[in-house]
Structures are given as structure tokens and as C-alpha cells.
């Protein structure tokens, strides 16, 4: 590293900009200093998403309800892939909202550099603000959907008594955090690569769709023993399974599988942040 040549600059200046920095030099303090910006980004994306719409945030509910209905009819009734003993609608809704948070977050963060190029090319702020704010603003839609899910759950509980909470409910915050980190990790890896390879933007929407079929969203894991490999090592599988287990009492908790999932999440996220950190300094030259 050539940094030593200019080391005396650190004595008289607070900020020193060098061509390269070590991969571990990630300025998390700056990210914290810019927390207001993150929240304003969240507000911006939320406000602009629903401005001049009649139904406003209701759209966050309509879409999963319709998708869940389709899943219930196609995969539940026609293909018979839902487990017995649980209301199909609740089963699909539960899995789908968590998946859609994952998918939306991944898709949005994978576009970080390209969709924010106009701002990032004109002003400096810690670039991680953008994906972090994306993950948070997607969380708002998820929260709205989750409230609806609670309503559905209460309905089934009161009317049929066919759903029940298990102690795994205490893991729910962890599961949501893990979903956020994993989707952000994959998203920022993709976004770092898209600064050079635009091909990946095409791959993302398609890839996310394929990923959904490798996850227990449209069906129960137990029906797919044969494709065990894909399921077992897909880090999303245990997240959705435990989430369903917490609220519906169906599904399974496999510690090894969950452990792998957590490890993959951490590795992906760390790689993502390092890669992002490398790319952010010069991405304006290539985007």
C-alpha cells in the first residue's frame, strides 16, 4: 500500500482521501452520522410511492391478497401442495408476505447504484445509506401486510380455532432481521457488479422468481423431499419454515439447516458490504 507516503497529512487534516483504502476500512460511523438521510430516503420512497393514488398504502395489501388467492387456488386446491390441518389461505399468506419482503428488498437494493446514480454523481454521502434505507422502507410495506396477517390469524383463531402460536414466535424479529440482511447482502453484491455488468439487472427479476420456486412459498417442504438439496441449502427455506411454525404450528425446525442459513446470511452480507465499499468510490466513472 502506498498510503505511507502521505501519512503526515493525517497530522494536520481531519479528512484524507487516498486512491485506495483497505477492504476493512468501512466507515460505519459516517453511516450513523447520516442516519437522518436514511430516514428521509425512507420517507421519500414511501411518500412518493403512494402520492396521487386513491387507495394509497392499501396497495401494499391488495397485491399480496390477490397473489395469495391465486396460490391458494392453484397450488392449494388444484395441485394440492398445501399441508392439511391449516387454513390454506393463512398458510400461503404467511409465507408469501415474508418472501415478498425478501424479493422486493433484493430487487430494490440490486438497483442501488443505477437508480441513485444522479444523486451519487453529484453529492457525497455514505453510499450504504441507499440500500439500508431501501431495506427499511420495504419493511414498512411488510409491517402493513403483517398487520393484515394478524387480522386473518385472529379470524381463523376465533372462528375455527385452526391456528395456534408456538414458542418460535420469539424468533420472529430475528427472522425478519435475517431476511433483511440476506436480501440486502445479495442485493448489494448484485448492485456492485451491475456497475460494470448490466447483464445482471436482467438476471435479477428472473432469478428472484426462480428462487421463489426453490423456497417453500407455494408449497410445504414436506412435499418436496426429492429435491432435498435445493431446499436444504437454500437459506430462505428455514426462515419461511420457522416463520410459519411460529404462527401456524406447521412446518419444521431443523437446527443444522437453520445454522447453515444464518452462516450463509452473515457471509453473504459481509462479502456484500466489502464489495460495495470497494465499488462505491469510483462507480460514477463507470455507471
Amino acid at each position: 500500500m502506498k498510503g505511507n507516503e502521505y501519512s503526515e497529512l493525517y497530522d494536520s487534516y481531519e479528512n484524507v482521501v487516498l486512491p485506495r483504502r483497505h477492504w476493512w476500512q468501512i466507515d460505519l460511523k459516517a453511516l450513523w452520522r447520516y442516519r437522518d438521510l436514511i430516514m428521509l430516503f425512507v420517507k421519500r420512497s414511501f411518500v412518493t410511492q403512494y402520492k396521487q393514488t386513491v387507495l394509497g398504502p392499501l396497495w401494499a395489501i391488495i397485491q399480496p391478497i390477490l397473489t395469495t388467492l391465486v396460490f391458494t387456488v392453484v397450488f392449494g386446491n388444484i395441485a394440492g401442495l398445501a399441508p392439511s390441518g391449516v387454513p390454506k389461505f393463512a398458510f400461503y399468506f404467511c409465507g408469501y408476505i415474508l418472501w415478498s419482503y425478501f424479493a422486493a428488498c433484493l430487487t430494490a437494493t440490486s438497483n442501488t447504484f443505477i437508480s441513485n446514480a444522479h444523486i451519487m454523481g453529484k453529492a457525497y454521502f455514505p453510499r450504504l445509506c441507499a440500500p439500508v434505507s431501501t431495506a427499511i422502507s420495504q419493511l414498512i410495506s411488510f409491517a402493513i401486510q403483517f398487520v393484515l396477517f394478524m387480522g386473518i390469524w385472529i379470524y381463523y383463531y376465533a372462528a375455527y380455532g385452526s391456528v395456534s402460536v408456538t414458542s418460535y414466535i420469539f424468533m420472529v424479529p430475528l427472522l425478519i432481521l435475517q431476511t433483511a440482511l440476506l436480501s440486502m447482502g445479495v442485493g448489494i453484491i448484485v448492485s456492485s457488479l451491475t456497475t460494470k455488468y448490466r447483464d445482471l439487472t436482467h438476471l435479477v427479476s428472473f432469478g428472484v422468481q426462480l428462487w421463489m420456486y426453490a423456497s417453500p412459498v407455494a408449497y410445504d417442504t414436506s412435499k418436496f423431499e426429492r429435491f432435498g438439496f435445493l431446499f436444504k441449502y437454500n437459506p430462505v427455506t428455514p426462515i419461511i419454515n420457522i416463520f410459519r411454525l411460529a404462527f401456524l404450528g406447521v412446518g419444521e425446525f431443523q437446527p443444522v439447516q437453520y445454522g447453515i442459513s444464518v452462516a450463509v446470511t452473515v457471509i453473504v452480507f459481509v462479502i456484500g458490504v466489502i464489495l460495495f465499499n470497494r465499488v462505491e468510490k469510483n462507480f460514477t466513472d463507470t455507471v
Binding site: 487534516y13 481531519e14 479528512n15 482521501v17 486512491p19 444523486i119 454523481g121 453529492a123 468510490k281 466513472d285
Partner: peptide, 26 residues
């Protein structure tokens, strides 16, 4: 304004920098 990094050499400054490379950024 740290929008992009130098290829070689060093830049150092004290305090905060506000860059108006464009008006109404964002």
C-alpha cells in the same frame, strides 16, 4: 467532493465540505 476517488496522489481537508455540483441534488 468525494464523488469519485483519485487515481493517485492524496487530497486532505479539514471540516465539512458541501458540494453544489448541481443545484437541487436529490
Amino acid at each position: 467532493s468525494r464523488v469519485t476517488a483519485p487515481t493517485s496522489g492524496a487530497i486532505a481537508y479539514n471540516g465539512r465540505i458541501t458540494s453544489m455540483l448541481e443545484i437541487g441534488t436529490g
